[in-house]
């Protein structure tokens, strides 16, 4: 029930953003508000159980991402360390595109995260950063297999591949 309502609420906010400026109730038209409410309820009913659920371990409380501090941390991470690392890696890959100097390989990382959301956040951060690409995940102990374009060390530390991402993922999601 709570899961349905939360998912519906998030969906409704997105619907309101998409139909910004359509009428006179606030900035929305009454038809859009009704359609949005109905559609977000449907979305909540369908996806609630997937979007909000308890995960393995004591850190996996289902409602932890509603904490505004976590959302703020996530935004800080997005515009701060993540964007900086991404820009740096982009310049590096741009250099490799032009010169063709690559040493590719698949390495194994042990980030030590305990929730699915944390691993997803880390894997997406790794994949979005050029030069590293998460190919597969070990479902049991949550190790990541990462395709790395410039292997300097076949058994690298997590820090060498993705810097401070695991710390941020732990702070945000666990």
């Amino acid at each position: 029930m709570l899961a349905t309502l939360i998912t519906a609420g998030v969906a409704f906010v997105f619907y309101l953003l998409l139909t910004f400026g359509s009428g006179t109730v606030g900035v929305w038209s009454i038809e859009e508000l009704i359609t949005g409410a109905v559609l977000s309820l449907v979305a909540g009913l369908v996806a609630g159980r997937v979007a909000v659920r308890r995960e393995g371990g004591e850190r996996g409380h289902p409602l932890r991402m509603l904490n505004p501090l976590r959302i703020l941390l996530f935004l800080v991470y997005l515009v701060g360390p993540f964007l900086f690392a991404m820009a740096k890696a982009n310049l590096d890959v741009a250099y490799r595109v032009i010169t063709g100097k690559i040493r590719p390989g698949i390495v194994r990382l042990t980030p030590g995260l305990s929730t699915d959301f944390g691993v997803t956040l880390l894997a997406n951060s790794i994949t979005l950063t050029p030069g590293t690409l998460s190919v597969d995940v070990d479902e049991e102990n949550r190790d990541l297999y990462v395709h790395w374009i410039n292997v300097t060390d076949p058994e690298p530390s997590t820090k060498a591949v993705c810097g401070s991402f695991p710390d941020w993922a732990r702070r945000i999601a666990e």
């Binding site: 690559i102 040493r103 590719p104 698949i106 194994r108 597969d136 395709h147 076949p154």
Partner: peptide
């Protein structure tokens, strides 16, 4: 398989 890979940990698994 990744071409010219110096290391492939996924293969060992």
């Amino acid at each position: 398989k990744p071409k010219g890979a110096v290391v492939d940990k996924l293969e060992d698994r």
